[in-house]
Amino acid sequence: MSKQDKIIVGISIGDLNGIGSEIVLKTFLDSRMMDFCTPVIFASVKLISFFKKEYELDINLHGIDSLDDIIHKKINVLNVWKETVDINFGKEDKTIGEYAVKSLAAAVSALKESQIDVLVTAPINKSNVQSETFSFPGHTDYLAKELEGDSLMLMISETLKVGLLTDHVAVKDVAKNITRELIEKKINTIHHTLIQDFGIEKPKIAVLGINPHNGDNGVIGDEDDTVLRPALDNIRNNGKTVFGPYAADSFFGSGNYKNFDVVIASYHDQGLIPFKTLAFGSGVNYTAGLKKIRTSPDHGTAYDIAGTNTANPDSFVEAVFSAIKIFETRNEYMEISKNPLKTNRKKPFVKKK
């Protein structure tokens, strides 16, 4: 990206029978979005034109066959395929899953080659994308394989950030997957992410317990005492500001989360249920810890409303803005890190209302 150009936002189209296409197009219905970025949708212009007509949207599309043909101030659609795709809104379809993977793979390849600056992914169906060549429980795991770094699911909103020690792991396997090494690795990743990508110089990190009531001194499991507490003590001894473990059941209801820059949950639902209760529709899923930047909305394919033209694009809009802001904050951090004598920080990115 040159200084005179906009940040190029690559977009994987997700499950075509879900609401992904609708929220993507509605995001760029307001032409002022082009003041912040240049979108590139990885799909086919024929298909995206079908969705444009289906949702009666007054937007102009620019079909391209090469990323060298991107035009700023346009909604670019890269032809990853050209054949006709049968759309059946709300239906789970393995063939549709294959197209979701094609879009994602092409977008990730472009991200790795720096042909796009950031990636925003529309929702996929984790079941219908499974195949011999794609056997991942979600975007995060796939990106961990394809991109450099230690990936970590970090849910973000204006008032709350929630990270996970384990993400797409069955509840019965959570405790055995949480080791001292994992805890230290995840917290180190989050600590660095908050500094590098969010400009928080001295992050305050809260950690939730593994068991109910942190195990009640071993009555309800001993993992909090034998694994979690020793790991947190070691992290504190290394100079990081880490608090906990906190009993998860009262942590959010009491408002205690407001005292910290991030909350780390032990498993998926322990963190995502309160996050989506407090921030649904404005939250963003950020894959922290990677060399490249990827965000997504905080919801799924929403088959129940797919094709009804009622999907709310707000979370996808936030995902785009978050990717842009993180990209700019990280670039500034990298510039300052190269020149530690530089003290005049640029004004932070501010989203126009």
Rank of each mutant, 00 (worst) to 15 (best):
residue 278 L to C: 01
residue 315 S to P: 08
residue 212 P to N: 02
residue 350 V to S: 09
residue 257 Y to S: 05
residue 22 E to T: 07
residue 145 K to W: 03
residue 4 Q to M: 13
residue 121 T to K: 01
residue 196 Q to C: 11
residue 8 I to G: 10
residue 263 V to L: 05
residue 335 E to F: 13
residue 245 P to H: 08
residue 170 A to P: 14
residue 180 R to D: 10
residue 296 S to D: 07
residue 147 L to A: 06
residue 105 A to G: 00
residue 25 L to Y: 07
residue 132 E to Y: 11
residue 69 D to V: 02
residue 202 K to M: 08
residue 195 I to T: 07
residue 138 G to E: 02
residue 103 S to Q: 01
residue 145 K to M: 13
residue 320 V to K: 03
residue 229 R to D: 00
residue 8 I to S: 10
residue 260 F to H: 03
residue 201 E to L: 12
residue 83 E to L: 03
residue 114 S to E: 15
residue 331 N to E: 13
residue 44 S to K: 04
residue 202 K to N: 14
residue 333 Y to K: 06
residue 341 L to C: 01
residue 352 K to R: 12
residue 277 T to L: 11
residue 237 N to F: 05
residue 316 F to W: 09
residue 309 N to P: 08
residue 78 L to E: 05
residue 227 V to R: 01
residue 149 G to M: 09
residue 58 D to P: 08
residue 228 L to I: 02
residue 155 M to E: 03
residue 225 D to E: 14
residue 7 I to K: 09
residue 331 N to P: 02
residue 37 C to Y: 03
residue 298 D to F: 09
residue 278 L to Q: 01
residue 200 I to N: 02
residue 7 I to R: 02
residue 257 Y to C: 00
residue 181 E to C: 03
residue 171 V to S: 10
residue 325 K to S: 15
residue 326 I to K: 03
residue 147 L to D: 08
residue 246 Y to P: 07
residue 183 I to T: 08
residue 350 V to I: 15
residue 16 L to Q: 10
residue 344 N to M: 12
residue 352 K to M: 10
residue 147 L to R: 05
residue 265 A to K: 06
residue 142 Y to S: 04
residue 250 S to A: 15
residue 162 V to Q: 02
residue 352 K to N: 11
residue 177 N to K: 13
residue 286 Y to F: 15
residue 112 K to R: 11
residue 25 L to P: 04
residue 298 D to N: 10
residue 181 E to I: 10
residue 120 V to T: 06
residue 328 E to D: 06
residue 314 D to L: 14
residue 71 I to W: 03
residue 312 N to S: 11
residue 176 K to Q: 14
residue 114 S to C: 06
residue 222 D to K: 13
residue 212 P to G: 02
residue 202 K to E: 15
residue 148 E to Y: 12
residue 38 T to E: 01
residue 297 P to C: 13
residue 151 S to L: 08
residue 102 K to V: 01
residue 95 T to G: 11
residue 349 F to M: 00
residue 310 T to P: 01
residue 250 S to P: 00
residue 346 K to L: 12
residue 201 E to P: 02
residue 328 E to K: 15
residue 179 T to L: 10
residue 59 I to C: 06
residue 223 E to V: 00
residue 130 Q to W: 08
residue 275 F to V: 00
residue 319 A to T: 11
residue 80 V to P: 02
residue 135 S to Q: 13
residue 35 D to N: 15
residue 296 S to L: 07
residue 240 K to A: 04
residue 126 K to V: 06
residue 244 G to C: 08
residue 184 E to C: 07
residue 351 K to P: 00
residue 72 H to C: 07
residue 132 E to V: 04
residue 181 E to Y: 10
residue 286 Y to I: 03
residue 264 I to L: 06
residue 32 R to H: 14
residue 237 N to Y: 08
residue 160 L to S: 03
residue 299 H to C: 09
residue 252 F to N: 06
residue 273 I to S: 05
residue 308 T to L: 15
residue 133 T to Y: 13
residue 281 G to W: 04
residue 135 S to P: 01
residue 347 K to G: 10
residue 110 A to H: 06
residue 52 K to D: 10
